[in-house]
Design a protein around this nucleic acid. Structure first.
Lengths: 331, 331
DNA sequence: AGTGTTATTGCAACCGATCTCAGCAACCGA
DNA sequence: TCGGTTGCTGAGATCGGTTGCAATAACACT
């Protein structure tokens, strides 16, 4: 039950250890008869190959690091979940690395992963990624980023169309009859977050409205501050777009503490489409990002880059998810 | 910048590779002069030891698997977060393994971790753990379980005192004037979940009340069903204890959809103390589990067992966290 | 039968460390 | 001055596989 090395199996099967090795990793190079015999013996012994030894010799492994700033944030949690699945559908093992937003830790993970011969990595950043830093590691040449990156086309990315998402939100709110719509930024200092805000600013201006940015911070308290700001206004907007679901939760919670009801007094729409939103009070209307797709695509992109060196930038379509936190403005 | 093996450093420092090895892993065995020189050279080259090679040779590594059923569940996410920290404070690397409740996957992770020479593992189960299954792996002898386990004292555990937690909740509610208190179970089929429910049953009976179990399922929809049950009652309880925070969220959300207000119409108290609860609407009153402590203690227990073979069962004290979802019953 | 291919398998070096053993120099006491 | 420690370093086997190369077997063809 222990100490099962390849030599043990080899002996038991009456062949050389290299043959056993081939039987597992290059089946076509072994006579099918022999192979089956070996496999049977191995099976009987309960033998599995050591990924460590394999990686060491092959100088490549199946460990795929997913680097996220905070696993406690449901967005990253959902990403981690779908990526785990996507990864082992393809025979990889996802290694979750949590940085807490500390760049030093990110660096640490990169060197570690390089040492583990990870074939590539996925980064879901909380701030604008510094591609130069990424490339200080030769490993950094094989990274897929879940965000838009600026000024560097050499790293594959997957994102959703922020403008389109904001447009969906705005259209939904306009359709309900809202004309005064506020915005609360927050949490992530990524390009994506920036894009959402820019889109909001631009599009409300275009439609003749006045942008009302309730808070533009990028920490966890943006939602709370946005709500406070809202409460202090003499003539507050009738609807609020939150940069992401977590912020929307915070906004609604803070508003509720002051007796402001959603959607009765003000409509709130989020951005992310977290499963959790369906269990919020009220259930959150939001712009859904296809998180599951993002996971699969990120891995495909990485594999593609490894294979033929191509660098793609995939932009996914978001989708409006109407639940309970938006309604017609009260007259 | 690449191909940095121990031999390269050895050559550069003019010593044998075994000396370099010692300089890193057994500093006291090398003349301090030599050691410092080696370290300096290594530093200059940007050298780090290969954890793979180390693990292979030493037959022990610093990889610590944390096996959870669902990382999307904030409880496990918070656990993962604190354990990550606890782990690398002690020089371990936490490997997050998500099973989705599939025992086969759990098995897979165990063999994998055994192959990686993990010194021990932590299991946060979603169902009663089968210690027999655990021990089919020699690795299984070095596992700490985050739950109470029955009929097997040989595996270390860390839990919180469920009875005490329920008592805290009941006392709080009684103090506010509630006499009719319902209960919604849910999500986890663990001993812990069982204990909470048993405690509720027992203690309300003791205080002369009638237990009202709104739902006793153990899936994600228990909360919703519990709320439905509540709505159909002619004379519903004035307060509800939820087996955990996620269930409480679902209860409040479902209640809200039917126009029932928390805490105005009914008080709801959760169990877990998730950070997310503070951002719920209303902010959730709950029984806080010391999740951070659990993480640290789990690792300590594992190390202790590794060191002297001792098997401890730590029971932590929960704590009442009063936020906005409970108030006096309406008359 | 003789020769050229091709399919299989064994051999042995190698991946990047660790660790036991042995060698050697400096040091101690008598 | 000599045997006995002690401190430090080098040699080389080893962990569990992989892989290029050589050897042999098997088969095809003329």
């Amino acid at each position: 039950m222990s100490d099962l090395s390849i030599d043990v199996v080899a002996k038991a099967a009456g062949v050389h250890r290299s043959t056993v090795s081939r039987a597992f990793s290059r089946p076509e190079a072994v006579k099918s008869e022999t192979r089956e015999h070996i496999l049977r013996v191995a099976e009987g012994l309960g033998y599995t190959m050591s990924p460590l030894a394999q990686a060491l010799r092959r100088k490549t492994s199946t460990f795929v690091p997913l680097i996220v700033p905070d696993i406690t944030n449901p967005f990253f949690a959902e990403l981690a979940k779908t990526m785990t699945q996507a990864a082992d559908e393809r025979g990889y093992q996802l290694l979750l690395c949590v940085t807490n937003g500390d760049p030093a830790k990110t660096d640490g993970y990169f060197t570690a992963m390089q040492a583990m011969y990870a074939p590539f990595g996925i980064v879901a950043p909380s701030t604008k990624v510094d591609t130069k830093a990424l490339k200080r590691f030769d490993f950094g040449h094989k990274v897929v980023v879940i965000d838009r990156v600026e000024g560097d086309d050499t790293v594959p990315t997957v994102t959703v169309d922020s403008r389109r998402g904001i447009m969906l939100a705005l259209d939904h709110l306009h359709g309900l009859g809202h004309t005064s719509i506020g915005y609360v930024s927050g949490i992530a200092g990524t390009h994506t977050a920036q894009d959402r805000m820019d889109a909001y600013l631009e599009m409300t201006a275009q439609s003749g409205g006045t942008p009302i940015v309730l808070d533009s911070g990028s920490d966890l308290d943006a939602g709370t501050r946005g709500a406070e700001h809202f409460l202090q206004m003499g003539n507050p907007p009738t609807a609020i777009i939150a940069a992401n679901d977590m912020v929307a939760f915070a906004v609604i919670s803070a508003l509720g503490r002051s007796g402001v009801r959603v959607p009765d007094d003000v409509s709130v729409i989020g951005f992310d489409g977290l499963a959790l939103g369906a269990r919020f009070n009220p259930a959150l209307t939001t712009i859904r990002q296809p998180i599951a797709d993002m996971g699969h695509i990120a891995i495909e992109l990485a594999e593609k880059q490894n294979a033929d060196g191509s660098v793609d930038h995939i932009v996914l379509e978001p989708e409006l998810l109407v639940r309970g936190s938006t309604s017609e403005p009260r007259k």
